[in-house]
């Protein structure tokens, strides 16, 4: 069996899913071991764990395949996930208006847009218009920096 970094990632995903299942089953069990609480969770968790074990064994037996080799690298997606995460996490501090403008502008720049007029113009127009629309339509206040808010 050829065992390299690519299959390790696959195995880690199976282990991750099995770990979540085990943790959730134990969490539910400690909360209450009555049948009313475990009526669905217990059978589903047991079957999931059995399937994860089977998948783990299958992957170990199969080893690295052409599908593993052809898989795209995560180099370009990584930074995008990064700025998307920063956007969501900072929403409450920066407000929907400012955070959205900064997110769109950064995204465009990362994707190779170098025309400053487009980067600034589009991010400002989109961010401000969408923020105004949702703040007007939604029945509850939103975190804001540039617009007044009751949040």
């Amino acid at each position: 069996m050829e065992f390299n970094k690519k299959i390790l990632a696959d195995l880690l995903v199976v282990i991750g899913l099995a770990s979540f299942t085990s943790w959730y089953l134990l969490n539910a069990w400690f909360a209450s071991s009555q049948p009313e609480n475990l009526i669905l969770i217990l059978p589903i968790a047991v079957i999931t764990l059995a399937m994860c074990s089977l998948e783990f064994i299958q992957q170990c037996r199969t080893g690295t395949t052409s599908a593993h080799e052809e898989r795209e690298t995560a180099e370009t997606t990584g930074p995008i996930i990064g700025i998307f995460s920063i956007y969501v996490i900072t929403l409450e501090w920066l407000g929907f208006d400012l955070a959205t403008i900064l997110f769109i502008a950064t995204f465009l720049w990362l994707q190779g847009e170098r025309r400053w007029f487009w980067i600034v113009g589009y991010s400002l127009c989109f961010g401000l218009l969408v923020t105004l629309f949702f703040s007007y339509m939604l029945p509850y206040p939103m975190p804001m920096s540039l617009f007044p808010t009751d949040y």
Binding site: I80, F84, Y87, V88, L91, E92, F96, T100, F103, I104, F107, L108, Q111, G112, E113, Y122, F126, G127, V130, T131, F134, M137, L138, P139, Y140, M142, P143
Partner: peptide, 25 residues
Amino acid sequence: KYLIPSVLALAIFGSFGLTGNISGP
């Protein structure tokens, strides 16, 4: 490159609209 950030941002606004707090985003 224009559609992806716009739709992602719309999804974030929409999810806030659904939950009324930061748990949606």
